[in-house]
Amino acid sequence: MVENRRYRNIAAYLVLTIGIVIVAFPVYLAILASTFDVATIINGNMPLVPGPHAAENYYQTLFFGGATSREPVGIMMFNSMIMAMGIAVGKIVISILSAFAVVYFRFPLRMTAFWIIFITLMLPVEVRIYPTYKIVADLGLLDTYTGLILPLIASATGTLLFRQFFMTIPDELLEASKIDGAGAFRFFKDTLIPLSITTIAALFVIQFIYGWNQYLWPLLITTKSSMQTIVIGIKKLTYSQDALAEWNIAMTTAVLAMLPPVLVVVFMQRLFVKGLVETEK
């Protein structure tokens, strides 16, 4: 029995290890490639231990960029950061307010409003991309942060998430607030937001990564290289017509592009768990 269990454990570890290797190896390869010069990578005999050019590659990438993207990756990261933060924060603000309205206020066409928001779930950016582009262009928002952020804020996921959460908060809490002299805004600020921290954190993580990884929309509406995001930058770096692709710079950029989402997940997860443990309705 004991013997048996040990073999089973070994088998489980084996399967898990294979899985991890499959997922992690390309990532490791990218990190590795960011520590060699381009010649070593191109000749196809890249060693499996880090090389000597890390500092040089990262310095070059962050502050000067590659030949084809012509912008320092630092600028691209800054653009991506603004876009991802803008989308995450904007979406949280809009959806928590609209969920608050839908759940706690009785006004004409309340459910109609809710269903209209709900229906937008079926219309992701890709589906409405032409009319959205047209509107953004007409508003003169091409090559602006507003143009990058605004159209991606409009979606129903956050509203639904907050609505479901608000519905689980007992009505007595609202009534107690009323008796305690808290109006709608005070109730929102003093009770709903503190109770929603976990939901806010979850939504932030999801939306930050969603915003950071956007490709199609920034590709359409940014033409200036100073406005391009890091995801677009990677694509441009791996593509060159008459020269060798700068794989060392491209891989360094890829590693840099992975960093913020990873940090967000690692940092927010702590808040996440803390929120889960501490909040009680």
Binding site: E172, L173, E175, A176, K178, G181, T191, P194, L195
Partner: peptide
């Protein structure tokens, strides 16, 4: 309610959890 000069104790206490 807040101007009626009343105070209420609820069945599930309705304490602010946070």
């Amino acid at each position: 309610p807040s101007d009626r000069d009343i105070a209420m104790v609820f069945q599930n206490y309705a304490l602010y959890p946070h």
